[in-house]
Nucleic acid binder design. Structure first.
Lengths: 339, 339
DNA sequence: CACGTTGATTGCAACGTTGCAACATTGACG
DNA sequence: CGTCAATGTTGCAACGTTGCAATCAACGTG
């Protein structure tokens, strides 16, 4: 049915090995021979059998990208960018989603679940930094998100503390004084929420303020943002500004503000984190902290590629920090502009 | 480094073939032998080498899922469900996105791009139905979206005409008379937009109405919806209702309505199509046509699995239609309810 | 002219697995 | 007690590719 190296070789009148040299650019081949082989390849519609190639070479050409979820705007966009970046370096991406389940994260890391991959980029949810390296065994691994600086794993992350501090400063600069946060989480493997909470408090402290409330959430989705803002609006003295640790939380909160007739930004300034598409088109448009997602994806794939092809000797673990910026939009008082 | 069948066999004191029988459940194995082998597998941390297995069996265990984009809410959610459904049947999904580029769709179908897969589920954008089968060659293929009924390919789709008719009826039932549509597209491989336009007109015709305007768009994203509604609001007699062929278009339109002080639903009823998460939390929440996405994913994977493992003799092409329903929300006059 | 050097091509073996067919063992049955 | 079937186990070969080392021809150099 499908043509093999052997068939091409027979048609072109050369050895199997020479055909292999042509199709994989392995060794020098005389121009005339190359042309003859290429013609035979064309005629038979030959495609290399990747299973055989993988078996022989011990590599699959696949990298795993493990995220908690694909359908959310943030991870969806990130996954798309990672796929692009990987393709640019000749990788094929195997996208896995864990739904935050610890056992699934573990099984993907230790290789008992999913296909064989040459390396992995993971945005961990439940697994603690310490467990990541040991579970992965020798598998090249790049972690998205912050880790202890003394860890032995490559990671790519924002300066979460600095970013949250910038967010707090932004709200302060808009004249707000009664500022709350939505999005704290406890008991997770990664410490992102804690870092943002820390930065948030720092930013307020600089202005001599302290948080009027900090609301815990179970996840970072809209429904939780809605619930949390209802809680805050029921306080005797509700806040005049809220920093949500994700745009989705903020959009849920925005919806509740509309329901209850609370004007944004007049009565309540609202800002999010992530810069998802929906926030740009919300009414009012959502102020947010925008991480440089392209750079996260690009650097992560680059880092992983170096690990896979790099020297066997252990390179030192890298800690790559990508920039972010605050995008001031209508929800914190920027003038209304057509999208 | 990693253990092979051979190593396990040596440790357990049986032949390589018997270990293979144990790990792949291929043949009857005595309980005592099985236990001894399993113990050795455990001790050595043996994992089957998939490349070798694939080479031997001629199957990869991978199915390709090809969509125009991953980061959009509709395709993101669909991709997630497809991955779940595939996992339930033992497949691993290779997610590819084409960005609507015709040449990339073609190369993915004919196998010159991407990894080798046992079958493919594709949501085509640029490629015409006629070309799909010929490009795929013998590769089992399931198409998402409507095709000519006489085609030779399995497909899973909504009744797009019926769904759009239901949408039009909904707007009519709300007392609207000056009804427009946003989302027509020309020059694409798939005919979804045409089908929805057709159903939309049918629904109006039943009520003795005809469209006050039908706006073409370049894609189905928010920015185009925003542009299109600006166009409609500039008409001498603007519509009192608009049916958008996607929720994203509708959300873009919703934003422009807010910008221009047009009240939804009082001045303008607005509805979308797809039932994406954002629509539920928009203010006002967005009336939409909800396809049964779980069923699309489940049926598509089921259909493909049957193709791959089914009899060699050509099964007749299947045409699977999944149900949909109109979700009436605030943007067409449902009372405001907390999310 | 002998010799080393370079470039092009080749055959062989191996990657780790499973299909196939053969073999050994046991129990059932006439 | 001999025969047959069922059950459990095995060795061999093959899937399609590439690493390795060997071969061969052609060429420039001392």
């Amino acid at each position: 049915m499908t043509a093999r190296l052997k068939d091409v070789a027979a048609l072109a009148g050369v050895s199997v090995r020479t055909v292999s040299n042509v199709v994989s650019n392995a060794a020098a081949v005389a121009p005339a021979t190359r042309a003859r082989v290429m013609a035979a390849v064309e005629e038979l519609g030959y495609r290399p059998n990747l299973a055989a190639r993988n078996l022989r070479q011990g590599r699959t050409g696949l990298i795993g990208v493990v995220v908690p979820e694909i359908h959310s705007p943030y991870f969806g966009a990130l996954a798309g960018l990672l796929i692009d970046a990987a393709q640019g370096r000749g990788w094929t991406v195997l996208l896995e989603r864990t739904g935050g389940r610890a056992d699934l994260e573990r099984r993907l890391l230790d290789g008992s679940e999913g296909h064989q991959v040459d390396g992995m980029i993971i945005s961990p949810w439940s697994t603690s930094p310490a467990d990541l390296a040991s579970l992965a065994g020798g598998l090249p691994l790049v972690v998205l998100g912050e880790l202890e600086p003394d860890g032995s794993i490559d990671h790519v992350a924002l300066d979460n503390v600095g970013a949250a501090r910038d967010a707090a400063r932004h709200l302060v600069s808009r004249g707000r004084r009664r500022i709350a946060a939505i999005g704290l989480q406890s008991g997770l493997g990664h410490g992102t929420a804690e870092l943002r909470a820390e930065g948030f408090r720092q930013g307020l402290r600089e202005a001599g303020l302290s948080p009027v409330a900090e609301v815990e959430v179970a996840d970072l989705h809209r429904a939780e943002g809605a619930r949390a803002l209802r809680e805050l609006l029921a306080l005797p003295e509700p806040p005049d500004a809220v920093f949500c640790f994700s745009d989705e939380l903020a959009l849920g909160a925005l919806r509740v503000a509309a329901e209850q007739g609370v004007r944004v930004p007049e009565d309540l300034a609202l800002m999010g984190f992530d810069d998802i598409e929906d926030g740009r088109f919300a009414a009012p448009s959502l102020t947010t902290v925008a991480p440089d997602r392209e750079q996260i994806a690009e650097r992560a794939v680059q880092c992983l590629t170096e690990r896979v092809f790099g020297p066997v000797a252990a390179l030192p673990a890298r800690r790559i920090v990508v920039p972010h910026r605050v995008l001031a939009r209508e929800s914190t008082g920027a003038s209304v502009t057509p999208v």
